[in-house]
Simulated scan of single mutants.
Amino acid sequence: MKNLSLRTRVLTGSAALVAVGAGAFGAVAAASPGDSAPQAAPAAAAAKGEVKNKDTFASDHLTIDAATKAAQAALDAAEAANQRVTVAVVDRNGNTIVTLRGDGAGPQSYESAEKKAFTAVSWNAPTSVLVGRLAQTPNLKDIPGTLFLGGGAPVQLKGAPIAGIGVAGAPSGDLDEQFAQAGVAALGK
């Protein structure tokens, strides 16, 4: 085989590549979607990043329309009381879905509203209730992203938190929380 010409070696190599390519094409074609070919082996599925159903769970989340409806209801309640606030709605994981900053709301209200919403959904309780827990556990306030002031309300489905609404900017946390509760109430309509 040492005496093969360059031309013979190129032709032999090309033929080998064609054979490998045809084999790969055949394997891909045999596994195309919609065919009744058997499913890939579990090891192949794992290599593609697929997991078993028993390794997952489903959770409920507000739609963007529902989050916007709740935020607007909270903002409307604040405006009816002549208060300038910001309203934030976060999902179960604490990610912001929507934030509405009312006309004339203070610059601190944006971040405060998000933190109140995050705190409410994290503990599945109004933030005014959580303020009382600080007396027993003062280091709760050190948890990043939280704000233990009245103005946050959880949104629940079957008792489980699925979102949080936070309001900030009114002269008291009680008012902020009243507006947040108006947002929660709008979802039940």
Rank of each mutant, 00 (worst) to 15 (best):
N3V: 09
S5V: 02
L6N: 06
L11Q: 12
A16E: 01
L17A: 15
L17F: 14
A19V: 15
A19C: 13
V20L: 15
A22L: 15
G23K: 01
G23V: 07
F25I: 14
F25D: 02
F25T: 10
V28R: 08
V28C: 04
A29P: 00
A31R: 09
P33M: 11
G34Y: 04
D35L: 14
P38N: 04
Q39R: 10
Q39T: 13
Q39P: 02
Q39V: 14
A41L: 09
A43K: 06
A44F: 07
A44T: 12
A45E: 12
A47Q: 14
A47P: 00
G49K: 09
E50R: 08
E50M: 08
D55S: 09
F57E: 11
A58H: 08
A58G: 08
S59Q: 12
L62V: 06
L62G: 07
T63W: 11
T63G: 13
A66M: 13
K69Y: 02
A71Y: 05
A71K: 01
A71D: 06
Q72S: 08
A73I: 05
A74S: 15
A74G: 14
L75C: 03
A78P: 08
A81V: 07
Q83T: 02
R84Y: 07
A88D: 12
V89G: 05
N93P: 00
N95A: 15
N95T: 11
N95H: 12
I97H: 00
V98M: 10
T99M: 06
L100Y: 03
R101L: 04
G102H: 02
G104S: 10
G104W: 13
A105M: 10
Q108D: 12
Q108G: 06
Y110D: 13
E111Q: 14
E111K: 14
S112W: 01
E114T: 13
E114I: 11
K116D: 03
A117P: 05
T119M: 00
A120W: 00
A120E: 04
V121N: 09
W123E: 03
W123V: 02
A125C: 03
T127D: 09
T127G: 00
S128R: 11
V129Q: 14
G132N: 14
G132D: 14
L134A: 03
A135K: 14
A135F: 02
Q136F: 10
K141Y: 01
K141G: 12
I143P: 04
P144T: 10
G145V: 04
L147W: 01
F148R: 02
L149I: 03
A153W: 02
A153K: 05
V155A: 02
K158M: 09
A160V: 05
G164W: 00
G164P: 06
I165K: 05
I165D: 04
G166H: 05
V167P: 07
V167F: 08
A170E: 03
P171G: 10
S172D: 13
S172L: 04
D174W: 02
D174G: 14
Q178E: 07
Q181K: 15
Q181T: 10
A182S: 15
A182C: 04
G183S: 09
V184C: 03
A185V: 11
